[in-house]
Amino acid sequence: MKTLVIAEHDNTRLATATLNAITAATRFGGEVDILVAGHRCDAAAAQAASLAGTRRVLKADAAHYADALAENLAVLIRGMAGSGGYRAILAGASSFGKNLLPRVAALLDVAAISDVVAIDAPGRYQRPIYAGNVLVAVESDQPLDVLTVRTTAFDPAATGGSAPVEPVASGPDLGLSRVTGRELSKSERPELGAAAIVVSGGRGLGSGENYQRLLEPLADRLGAALGASRAAVDAGFVPNDYQVGQTGKIVAPGLYIAVGISGAIQHLAGMKDAKVIVAINKDPDAPIFQIADYGLVADLFEAVPALTAGLA
């Protein structure tokens, strides 16, 4: 029972979501192939080959794969699925996977299954719906399933493999779209989706200046990633890629510190699987306190600097 994992990468390094997807693919119990489609992507392919559980790395190297455009990749993957005899095609449920895999599924005339959190058997999956308030068991009798997997539900694949890298023929350049610009956040901090500790801020911080002044020193002290509620992103305190929640990033760190976040269900959907949740909010009735392990009812403008100092 073979599976194909679609690697997400920048031609040099794999995204961590791909490591989680490889672990999910091993739950099918068979051989795992990894497709690295990119341009001058030898480094990414070599990293994929070093991962435990990989049977082989299939490398499609062409200029029209440089930017991971869904139109070109979907046609390539459709061709490989036809000849490869795969039981499942998987990718992480990141913006890359969510953009690409439904397109692949439609080309293959199969249903896609999004945000899978458990693979009980081939064709037997579990996924959250209604912002994580309901978990549904999904059964498929399709010969081929197309899945995006929630990264927090599967450990990242370990290194220690030495799979061969085999070139595969490129598909056509459809020329339907092209990337004209990217504004990527640059940060020395851990990736939000994979961090052990997340410090997250909400509307209660009042401004972007306050967010930086209060939360960055705390995150620096803890080696934490920074996150935010939708309200804080909408208000322009931080960029969109900080958002944690139903429609933002899903995180499950060991420690999640929610500062000035009231706790709308859409936010809780993105962080309620954290091992330990701390909430700091001046409103004792804020819903975040209902799920927090440690709640501190306090003025965050005093409590956060004191916490940062207290951790020294």
Binding site: S94, F96, T180, E183, L184, N240
Partner: peptide, 10 residues
């Protein structure tokens, strides 16, 4: 809106 920030497509 992508995971790392923003991307513009034509």
């Amino acid at each position: 809106e992508i995971d790392g920030g923003l991307e513009t497509l034509a």
